[in-house]
Amino acid sequence: MPYRKPREGQPPLPQWKEDLNTAHKSVRARVEHALAHMKTWNILRNCRRKHDGVSHATRDIALMRNLTMTA
């Protein structure tokens, strides 16, 4: 969870908190992009109403995406 920016009149965040916020922002952006990308895939649309289907499909899609990004 990122650190909140201080209100007006309070001292600014220390540099180490700014660095953690930057790292958190980049990781969150990657996760959000991956989830948005997976939502467009037909596999998730077909598994939407199944109980375990979504978790299995999400795991498998994330695995395939990671494999394509590292190759």
Rank of each mutant, 00 (worst) to 15 (best):
K5V: 10
V31T: 09
T58F: 02
R28M: 12
D60H: 07
P12G: 00
T68A: 13
K25F: 11
P2Q: 06
T40K: 12
N42H: 13
V31K: 14
P2Y: 00
K17H: 05
L67T: 07
T22M: 11
K25S: 15
D52W: 14
Y3W: 13
L63Q: 05
E8R: 14
H33S: 11
T58K: 04
L20P: 02
R49F: 07
Q10E: 13
L67Q: 08
K50E: 14
L67D: 06
N21V: 02
A34L: 13
K17F: 03
M38G: 03
K25C: 11
R49E: 07
R30E: 14
M38C: 11
L35Y: 11
M64P: 03
H51E: 14
L35G: 06
L20H: 14
C47P: 01
T58H: 02
P11I: 03
T40S: 13
N21F: 03
L20V: 09
A36R: 12
M69G: 05
A62G: 03
R4I: 00
H24G: 06
R48L: 06
K25L: 07
A62N: 01
P12V: 03
N66S: 14
P14V: 04
W16Q: 10
L13K: 04
H56V: 11
A36W: 12
T68E: 15
R65W: 06
E18D: 08
A57I: 01
R59L: 06
A23R: 15
R49P: 02
S55M: 07
H51S: 09
N42I: 07
P6F: 01
A29Q: 14
L44H: 01
R48C: 04
H24V: 10
P2F: 04
V27S: 10
N21E: 04
V54K: 01
K17A: 08
C47H: 05
K17P: 02
A62T: 03
R48Y: 05
A71L: 09
T58V: 14
N21G: 03
E32K: 14
W41N: 10
A29P: 07
E32I: 13
T40D: 12
G53P: 01
L35W: 09
I61Y: 00
A36S: 10
L13I: 02
P11S: 04
E8C: 05
K5Y: 13
A62Y: 01
G9P: 00
R45S: 04
Q10R: 15
M38S: 04
V54H: 01
A71G: 11
T40A: 08
T68P: 02
H51T: 07
G9R: 00
Y3P: 03
M38N: 03
I43L: 07
G53R: 00
T58C: 07
